[in-house]
Every structure is written in structure tokens, then in C-alpha cells.
């Protein structure tokens, strides 16, 4: 029984006909639905009075449905238009609402040194928020690892091969010449673009999260096309832990310094540089890199844990 169950788990349906029905019927068409409806109508009680009540009930249900849908749509549109009517006109001053954003736009470049105002906002004015976000990512990775990681107590010998080899053999990704060739040529460009978005985060659109997502996607494509052995040469479990730890610790410590000096009115010794240069913006460039590394490690860690049950080779 156990071996049969394992065979079924591996996708084998032979000898399982009494448990699993392999359907050979084509998809249902519109005529089939019509036939079903007619059959349903004929199966109704033949008493003309009850049939009439049945038809009336269905008709009133349809009418009620339409009335409720249209009414809720009109109410929603009316509420939205009412709110829009109370907003201030486009271009006029609204001192209650946009005090903070005007401060960001007017003196963001001067205070943070970043040409990209969004980067200055999320990594300087609201750096505490971003710190929490990167720690949330790290916590999610830890939780997924707790649930899915195959360790000494969480391993079933009979399923170990399934995670490591059978999936690859089943979908033939490790033998596909097209995917391997394209991955071999495309992955370096994806990595390079990810690093560009990371490092240019304070000058142009982009930054830690988007660049890290591109880097993580590059790692996933690398491990899909060229196999996990190749990806393990770049990012083992130990290195992944180390990179995540160093990035988060650097973020926390440097922001501790900035918050401490800022709250106590002390002088900040981190140079801002010339706006527009690659080495400018104070702490924004290294913080972007730290956030991006955390995001990339989290994405690749998720993929690796879901696919084979471990973060990397030991």
C-alpha cells in the first residue's frame, strides 16, 4: 500500500483506477449548459402552479440582483464624487494636507542629498519604517524555513529523492538545452541590471526593493536553468545567512547612530557628497544595498525552500 501511495505521489496513475478517475470527456460547451438547464426545468414538479411560482421566484431573484447591483454602484459613485468635491482644487494650496509632502519636495534634496526624492523619503525621513519592512522580510524567511526546511527531525527518507531529483526529472528542466543556453546568456545581464538599479537607487527610479527583486529573480532563473548545483556555488545556506545578518545589522547600527545624533542635536559625521554623484546621499546608497541584499536573499530563500526544502547546500 505504501509503495503504491508513493507511486501515486510521484504522478503514476496506473493501478489506481478505482481511486482516481481519469476523465476523457472534452470541455463543456454552451450547448451543454443549455441542455443541463432544460433537463433541470423538466425535472421540476409538473404542477403548473408550482412551476409558475418557481419561474416567478427565479425572475424576481434576477430583478432583485440587478437592482441591488445598480443601487450599490450608484451609491459608491455618489460617495466618491462627494468626497472629490470636498478636495481642494488641483494646484491650489492646501496647508492642512500637504505640509509634509511639500517639505519633502522642497528641501528633500538639500537635507538628504538624494536626487531621487522617494529614496530620500523611505531611507532617510522614514528609515524606521523601511527597517521594519526589511525585518518583516527576514522574519517571513525564518518562518518559511521553520515550516519547510528538511533537517534531521523533519526528513522522510522515502521523500528525499522526490524533493531533490524527481521534480527536475519530471519537468526536464535540467536537461533542456534551450533553457540552459538562454539562462547562461541572460542571467549575467539580469544580475548586472539588478546591481545597477540597486546602486543607482538614490539617483534614478529604483532602489533597494526593486533592485533586490531583480537580483532574486536572477538567482531563481539561474537555479532553474543551470540547476541548484550551480546556484549553490554562488549562494550557499551559510553565505545567505551571513549576508542577511550583515545587511540587517549594518542597517540597524548605522540608523541607531543617525537617530541618536539627530535626537540629541549632535553633529552628524556622515558626508552628504555632491547631489547627483554616485557617492552621495550619505547613508542612502549603503542602506539601499543592504535592503536589496535582504530582499534578494529572501526571494531566493523562498524559492529554494519551496522547491527542495533547504536554503542551500550545507
Amino acid at each position: 500500500m505504501k509503495s503504491r501511495l508513493r507511486a501515486w505521489f510521484d504522478g503514476d496513475l496506473s493501478g489506481m483506477e478505482e481511486f482516481v478517475q481519469v476523465t476523457e470527456t472534452p470541455d463543456a460547451t454552451h450547448e451543454d449548459f443549455k441542455q443541463t438547464e432544460l433537463a433541470f426545468e423538466e425535472s421540476l414538479p409538473q404542477n403548473p402552479r408550482s412551476r409558475m411560482i418557481e419561474r416567478l421566484g427565479r425572475k424576481s431573484y434576477h430583478i432583485l440582483y440587478r437592482v441591488v447591483a445598480v443601487t450599490s454602484c450608484i451609491v459608491f459613485i455618489g460617495v466618491m464624487l462627494y468626497v472629490i468635491g470636498h478636495l481642494s482644487r488641483f494646484g491650489t494650496d492646501n496647508p492642512r494636507a500637504d505640509e509634509v509632502s511639500r517639505r519633502y519636495i522642497e528641501s528633500g534634496l538639500e537635507e538628504t542629498g538624494a536626487t531621487n526624492i522617494v529614496a530620500g523619503m523611505i531611507l532617510d525621513y522614514r528609515a524606521f519604517d523601511t527597517l521594519g519592512e526589511s525585518h518583516v522580510l527576514f522574519t517571513a524567511l525564518v518562518c518559511v524555513a521553520m515550516l519547510l526546511q528538511l533537517d534531521r527531525k523533519n526528513t522522510r527518507r522515502d521523500l528525499e529523492d522526490y524533493y531533490t531529483t524527481t521534480l527536475d526529472v519530471y519537468f526536464r528542466t535540467s536537461q533542456d538545452r534551450i533553457l540552459q543556453t538562454i539562462g547562461f546568456f541572460v542571467v549575467p545581464f539580469i544580475m548586472m541590471f539588478g546591481i545597477y538599479v540597486l546602486v543607482n537607487g538614490h539617483l534614478s527610479p529604483g532602489g533597494g526593493f526593486s533592485g533586490g527583486a531583480i537580483l532574486g529573480a536572477g538567482m531563481i532563473i539561474l537555479s532553474c536553468s543551470l540547476g541548484f548545483k550551480t546556484a549553490d556555488r554562488l549562494l550557499t545556506a551559510r553565505r545567505l545567512n551571513l549576508v542577511t545578518f550583515i545587511a540587517l545589522a549594518f542597517y540597524s547600527i548605522s540608523k541607531c547612530y543617525v537617530f541618536y545624533t539627530g535626537a540629541n542635536g549632535l553633529e552628524n559625521h556622515i558626508p552628504k557628497g555632491i547631489p547627483g554623484a554616485i557617492l552621495s546621499g550619505g547613508l542612502i546608497l549603503p542602506l539601499n544595498v543592504a535592503v536589496g541584499l535582504v530582499v534578494a536573499c529572501t526571494m531566493y530563500g523562498f524559492f529554494s525552500l519551496f522547491r527542495r526544502g533547504k536554503l542551500g547546500s550545507d
Binding site: 496513475l13 481519469v22 476523457e24 519530471y170 519537468f171 526536464r172 533542456d176 534551450i178 533553457l179 538562454i182 546568456f185 541572460v186
Partner: peptide, 21 residues
């Protein structure tokens, strides 16, 4: 042109391996 035909190819290939009909 490098990447989208590969994803199309993989859609077809997975269908080829998974569809019993």
C-alpha cells in the same frame, strides 16, 4: 526575443508532460 519564446516553450512542454489527453 530571448526570454518570451522560452517561457512559451515551457508552457507547451509542461502541457506535453502533464496532459494525459
Amino acid at each position: 526575443w530571448c526570454t518570451s519564446p522560452v517561457s512559451t516553450h515551457f508552457l507547451g512542454q509542461i502541457e506535453y508532460y502533464m496532459d494525459r489527453q
